[in-house]
Design a protein around this nucleic acid. Structure first.
Lengths: 361, 361
DNA sequence: CTGTTAGCGCTTTCAT
DNA sequence: ATGAAAGCGCTAACAG
């Protein structure tokens, strides 16, 4: 019988002394373990483990004793071992095209904030919009057993096999900014209409009546939706829509200077809502170069909280932070999936700001 | 005798059937392990392990067999278990004030490139220049057993206990950009003098003879050193130093516009070397707003490869990338320390560009 | 409330 | 070239 044989051999080995040598002979690298604490205090290691995890099932007295000794020995939990045992890493993997783009670093900040609150570590990988790097990252995250994945896919990605594989063997996935229809994986994107509506409304409530809108090429949905949000707010407050107030930039930078000149001619303008950062920056820069202080004359609201705007013109305020919030929401969504709370997308409205859209497929 | 007793209990338990229930009862989450491969092929798991690690001590035939089966079962190594066993994670921890600052994201790219080449994963943590977050991160990295640390300390950090603790129980540390004198921990910083010298020389070799230098407050060493690098290049090429060519900005942005106006008056200027990005940006913006095309008249060289510069004025070129390179060098330094190759700082010149300085303390 | 035992999945001796 | 066994450090089920 297999077990008997095995055990007898085991027994003999131990009786006559093992001939095996331990893996780590060098003593220098020896970090204290729960067993060291256990030995010193003559308390079983399982109790030590419980104490260190603040289990209610160990007396206050021994808990204090153990904690004190742990501190004294400079004990630091070996997360690796713990993770292996529980098959949970409390880590979220984030895949991002590039961290240097402000939009993404804001999303990451949002993710980190929510992640840490929920007891998760956040690890980040950049794809530089390269499919191969993305596949490599997903594979690394899988074999490192991150509990879930937040991903904005690379521009090269058209095939989702690596993600389906992660979904099957790894854990839940939430897409952000660049939506993908993968079974049971929510996608979260910016609601351009709503965010625009809010920004415009903000200016209206500040008392602006003649609001110019910096837009872009209308073939791009993003600009179209933002324009409609702007219109919608105007309508709500019975402010007449004037098409000549919508400035459509093609070459954002050069057109920005043109925008500035136009504004200077339109004496009655009292507000700008920009949905085109590049154009806005060069317009404002032009105005400043010509000694025109914007805050005095015009209220400016931008779409993103891009620091370039802040560097160039502090008066350019942003009333919403859909990027940061996208991070927090994507992350809490993922945590819910990881912890099997099984939130239905319909029920998400509680944690959702209207500037964002969540879709499940 | 302890062992005997222990073993007999073990034996009995197994003879009469264990009453223990396995940890993971749910079958859904069952990823294939080496034991699964082992069982299917009737080859011992140790051999499977060897094969998967491409050990020379297993025959080509069985290796192929095992690799094929692994592929077939969709086997993915459990890095956690492997790391626990070998007590090596092949991971480098990077601590950075904030990833959104272009300088740091460039450094990170450099680190990642070198890290991946050397077989290391790179995990990043942001401190937002907050000491508490830094301590938390170091502690997380320690308990996650990253093999080494690359860190640009937070502005609040004056006490290094957490780092000394990591050094003692974790692994080597390399500081970048913000140097710290910690025993055996190299610091790598930009050599402002050399980088400036090179930038200026670049303009001289392009044929410029009247080069203006955008600088900042001379009390700050960074600007002083950069100015001296500029002087040094001029001297080498016997170009007279003219103090009136050094523009010192206090309020970088406003002074930038002033700079632009000064340049317009100095008709003979044919080059600008800027060591002050903010001033340069607003100067160039002013010139552009007034319809002056810079490339035609003046060669411009900047210190950093900041994308803001690129957005605003493509003709503003950067001849060196000390930031990216700082990442690659810091990382290769760290890997050498991790792998105990024990490089002496003196020998580093081979991998060092002159724009960087490595110090050991 | 505490101790005993097993085992997470892998690597690495040692023995054959 | 392969197999047997041990063990990395932790947690958890079970028994008292």
């Amino acid at each position: 019988m297999y077990f008997i044989k095995k055990q007898f051999i085991y027994l003999r080995k131990n009786l006559f002394g093992s001939t095996f040598t331990p893996l780590n002979l060098d003593m220098k690298n020896t970090k204290p373990t729960i067993h060291d604490i256990s030995k010193v205090l003559n308390i079983d290691s399982s109790t030590v483990s419980r104490a260190l995890n603040n289990s209610p099932r160990v007396s206050k007295k021994t808990k204090d004793l153990i904690l004190k000794k742990a501190e004294e020995l400079g004990y630091q939990k070996n997360t690796l071992a713990s993770n292996l045992r529980t098959s949970k890493t409390n880590t979220i993997g984030v895949i991002v095209p590039r961290i240097s783009r402000n939009f993404f670093s804001s999303v990451i900040s949002g993710i980190e904030e929510t992640g840490y609150k929920g007891g998760y570590n956040v690890v980040i990988g950049q794809t530089f919009d390269n499919l191969e790097r993305e596949q490599k990252l997903v594979s690394t995250f899988l074999s490192n057993r991150v509990d879930g994945l937040l991903i904005s896919i690379s521009m090269e990605t058209t095939d989702y096999e690596h993600l389906e594989n992660y979904k099957k063997n790894g854990g839940p996935i939430v897409f952000y900014d660049r939506p993908v229809s993968l079974k049971d994986c929510p996608s979260i994107t910016i609601n351009d209409f709503e965010a625009s509506y809010k920004a415009t409304k903000h200016l209206i409530l500040k008392g602006c009546k003649n609001i110019v809108h910096f837009s872009g090429v209308q073939k791009i949905n993003l600009y179209k939706n933002r324009k409609e949000g702007y219109f919608s707010a105007l309508k709500e407050y019975n402010i007449p829509i004037r098409e000549e107030y919508v400035f459509e930039a093609k070459l954002s930078e050069e057109d920005g200077i043109e925008f500035a000149k136009r504004i200077l001619k339109m004496k009655h303008i009292d507000g700008i809502y920009s949905a085109n950062d590049t154009a806005a920056i060069s317009a404002i820069q032009y105005l400043k170069s010509n000694g025109i202080k914007i805050p005095k004359d015009i209220s400016v609201v931008g779409f993103n909280n891009d620091p370039i705007s802040a560097v160039i013109e502090p008066s350019l305020t942003t009333i919403n932070q859909p990027d940061f919030e996208m991070g927090t929401i994507a992350c809490s969504l993922l945590i819910n999936l990881i912890e099997n709370k099984n939130i239905q997308v319909q029920n998400l409205s509680k944690i959702l700001t209207s500037e964002l859209i969540v879709r499940n497929s």
